[in-house]
Amino acid sequence: MASQRAGYRAAVLFDLDGTLIDSEPVWAAANGGLMRSRYAEMTDEILQNLSGLDSTLAMRYLHERFGWAGWDLADDVAWVEEQVRQQYAKGVNWLPGARDLLAALRREGLAVGLVTSTYRTLVAYVLAEAGAGCFDVVVCGDDGFAPKPDPAPYLAAMRHLELPASACVAVEDSPRGVASAAAAGCAVVQVRGHRPAPGADRHFAALADVDAVQLRELIGASVH
Score class of each variant (00 low, 15 high):
62 L>F: 05
148 K>N: 03
123 V>Y: 02
164 P>Q: 12
210 V>S: 05
72 D>C: 12
5 R>H: 14
77 V>L: 09
137 V>D: 07
170 A>L: 10
52 G>I: 01
137 V>A: 06
163 L>W: 06
23 S>N: 08
67 G>T: 07
121 T>N: 15
51 S>L: 15
118 T>M: 11
22 D>C: 02
121 T>L: 14
29 A>V: 01
161 L>K: 08
74 A>P: 12
82 E>A: 13
76 D>Y: 00
83 Q>T: 02
142 D>R: 07
56 T>I: 12
216 R>P: 08
61 Y>L: 13
218 L>H: 07
72 D>W: 05
77 V>P: 00
68 W>Y: 11
167 A>L: 06
76 D>L: 06
85 R>F: 08
67 G>K: 05
162 E>K: 15
199 G>V: 03
52 G>H: 00
140 C>P: 10
179 A>V: 02
145 F>L: 15
19 T>R: 00
163 L>R: 08
130 A>L: 02
110 L>I: 04
223 V>N: 14
201 D>C: 12
182 A>L: 04
224 H>Y: 15
74 A>T: 14
149 P>H: 06
167 A>D: 10
5 R>Q: 15
86 Q>F: 05
99 R>C: 00
218 L>F: 04
90 K>W: 10
199 G>P: 03
8 Y>W: 13
174 S>G: 07
166 S>W: 13
193 G>C: 06
160 H>N: 14
51 S>A: 15
214 Q>R: 13
15 D>A: 09
138 V>C: 10
153 P>Y: 03
137 V>M: 05
20 L>G: 00
8 Y>L: 15
30 A>I: 00
115 V>K: 02
191 V>Y: 00
116 T>L: 12
189 V>T: 01
178 V>G: 05
161 L>F: 04
